[in-house]
Simulated scan of single mutants.
Amino acid sequence: MSDFSTALGLSASGMKAQAMRLRHVSENIANADTPGYHRKMTTFEPLVSDGEQTGGVSVGPMQFDKSELSRIYEPGNPLADDTGYYDGSNVDLVVEIADAREAQRSYEANLKMFDQTRQMSSALLDLLRR
């Protein structure tokens, strides 16, 4: 049963990591029009137990995208400088949608692995009861 528990734990760690990634993507999309907003990026780190990698994954520290902010020309905006420009955000909606799809598919794959492991352990218990 230990192998089943390990497989369930690995799947769960992947689902937690992808859920956090989806959260950052949704925050980026929500703030795409916020002046001065820097895109949030999710980093992943391997889970380590007793000095060895377990195969699981955890979310590392959140990082901000360091690419330049877009410059928006709107002289009437209160945020505009003397030249009429102000800093927009560096969120690219196409990139965010692609990241969201990738995170969704990864989450679904981990969920499928979790469900398959649960079904196998249930079937094993049924066999052992006979």
Rank of each mutant, 00 (worst) to 15 (best):
residue 69 L to K: 09
residue 97 I to N: 04
residue 35 P to Q: 10
residue 66 K to G: 14
residue 74 E to G: 08
residue 70 S to L: 09
residue 128 L to T: 11
residue 13 S to Y: 05
residue 63 Q to M: 12
residue 4 F to E: 03
residue 43 T to Q: 13
residue 14 G to W: 01
residue 20 M to P: 00
residue 117 T to G: 06
residue 86 Y to I: 08
residue 81 D to A: 00
residue 70 S to F: 03
residue 65 D to A: 11
residue 98 A to E: 01
residue 128 L to G: 15
residue 26 S to N: 12
residue 76 G to W: 00
residue 71 R to I: 00
residue 77 N to K: 03
residue 60 G to Q: 06
residue 130 R to W: 00
residue 116 Q to Y: 09
residue 35 P to V: 11
residue 89 S to F: 01
residue 15 M to N: 09
residue 30 A to Q: 11
residue 107 Y to H: 01
residue 116 Q to H: 10
residue 63 Q to S: 10
residue 67 S to N: 10
residue 34 T to G: 07
residue 110 N to E: 07
residue 52 E to L: 06
residue 61 P to D: 15
residue 5 S to A: 13
residue 30 A to D: 08
residue 80 A to T: 09
residue 117 T to V: 14
residue 18 Q to I: 11
residue 92 D to E: 13
residue 86 Y to R: 02
residue 30 A to W: 03
residue 130 R to L: 11
residue 120 M to Y: 02
residue 115 D to H: 00
residue 29 I to Y: 08
residue 111 L to A: 15
residue 95 V to A: 14
residue 44 F to G: 03
residue 60 G to Y: 06
residue 117 T to H: 10
residue 75 P to D: 04
residue 129 R to V: 13
residue 45 E to M: 06
residue 83 T to C: 00
residue 21 R to G: 11
residue 22 L to V: 07
residue 99 D to I: 03
residue 66 K to S: 15
residue 60 G to I: 11
residue 87 D to N: 13
residue 15 M to Q: 12
residue 12 A to T: 15
residue 12 A to Y: 07
residue 104 Q to E: 13
residue 103 A to R: 05
residue 39 R to H: 03
residue 36 G to F: 02
residue 18 Q to P: 09
residue 3 D to H: 14
residue 86 Y to K: 06
residue 42 T to S: 10
residue 74 E to P: 04
residue 21 R to Y: 10
residue 33 D to I: 08
residue 99 D to L: 07
residue 65 D to W: 05
residue 49 S to D: 14
residue 74 E to I: 01
residue 88 G to Q: 05
residue 72 I to T: 09
residue 18 Q to T: 15
residue 23 R to A: 13
residue 78 P to H: 06
residue 64 F to V: 11
residue 12 A to F: 04
residue 85 Y to A: 02
residue 4 F to V: 03
residue 22 L to F: 04
residue 111 L to M: 14
residue 69 L to Y: 04
residue 27 E to G: 09
residue 70 S to W: 06
residue 88 G to F: 00
residue 118 R to Y: 08
residue 83 T to G: 11
residue 69 L to T: 09
residue 106 S to W: 04
residue 56 G to A: 07
residue 66 K to P: 00
residue 110 N to Q: 02
residue 77 N to F: 03
residue 2 S to Y: 11
residue 91 V to S: 06
residue 113 M to L: 15
residue 109 A to K: 12
residue 28 N to K: 01
residue 21 R to P: 01
residue 40 K to D: 05
residue 124 L to V: 15
residue 51 G to M: 05
residue 56 G to V: 02
residue 21 R to I: 12
residue 76 G to L: 12
